[in-house]
Simulated scan of single mutants.
Amino acid sequence: MTTSTARGTEPGRLTGWHGDPAYFRFLEHDHLDLDPVIDVLRRRVLGVVYRGVIDAGAAAELVRRFWESPARKRRGGEVCESLGYYVGAYHYHKPTATYLAESAGIAGYLRKLLDVPGEPVTMFRTMLRERLAAEGVTFRPAAQDGAGACPVLMRHWNAGGAFALQPHEDASQCREPQQAGFEVQRTLEYTVCAVNMCLENSDNGRLVMWNVVPDDDSKSRLGLYYSGSPYPPEVLDGIESIWLDVRPGDIYVFNGEHVHAVEASPPGAKRTTMAWNMGFCSDETVVSWT
């Protein structure tokens, strides 16, 4: 992991919240002690990475099932310049009812895909549920009218250019007007966190985190108030950044309200991850969504 700092004064540079050195860092562990995840959820530290904690055999089987799944779809968009593939449901820019219906429709396919000894999603979510319960906090998928959010998104992508996944943040999309009243919007009062599990990353494209949570003025000026993506790289010039090596078998959790991206890999590289977002929607409840 490397950290770089510059002191640019470009007029278009993003403004917003910046963490101090004690906060803006990744903790590293070689085993799943979830206390640091609580620190990320409570905005005490930027992130944590658990190195090599996913069983290699389980990861290979998950990737195989992903490519064979009849539920696998293609997706492009603002964040990823090239088309990628995924199994799961995205809440991005959809009415709540549409997202929850898609989540219900994909649930059986996901259960079949994840029916692998040693798969990390159930393990991690169970451990987190138990850890939060010790503090009197419930952990569950976000829900509305009895329907629940998709628990995990499995995806594969690569792209040319400077970034495989362009600079973006995960909070603005939670403001989607079509999702008014959906409890993911209440996580904006706390911290929107991202959970990622690396199954394969053949050329080890790094995660890039910038030390800025953009303010509403910046988001509005760039036309990103409801999307959070993509941030032009030039507006990030001069802002402190961390470039985190991501390796197969790693699980990493971070404050997704910071602008972040994924470094591009050479053509033909393979990058497959499983992911979801989560955050407190009240003092007693943490919800997750995709």
Rank of each mutant, 00 (worst) to 15 (best):
P232R: 04
V48K: 00
V37R: 00
A133Y: 05
V116R: 09
A60M: 06
A133P: 01
V79K: 03
H29R: 15
D170V: 02
L188C: 06
R186E: 14
A59E: 02
I242Q: 04
C80K: 10
A261I: 01
L34C: 09
P266L: 10
R51Y: 09
V262N: 05
G148Q: 11
E284N: 11
G77M: 07
P11A: 14
V63H: 05
R125S: 11
M123R: 15
R247Y: 11
A101F: 00
E61I: 03
E234P: 01
H156K: 10
V37F: 05
W276E: 01
Y86L: 03
G136W: 10
E189F: 11
L207Y: 09
L14Y: 08
R271G: 01
Q166F: 04
T98A: 14
A104S: 14
L207W: 09
L188H: 05
P267E: 12
E240F: 02
G108V: 06
M123W: 11
Y225V: 13
E135M: 12
R131N: 05
A171M: 10
G249F: 01
P36W: 01
I251V: 15
Y190Q: 09
G77D: 06
A180E: 12
A6L: 14
G148Y: 14
C281R: 08
Q179F: 07
W157D: 01
F24W: 04
V262F: 00
D35Y: 12
T187Q: 12
W276F: 15
V152S: 02
E240N: 06
R65L: 07
A6E: 15
A264F: 00
P267G: 07
P120I: 09
R125I: 07
R125G: 00
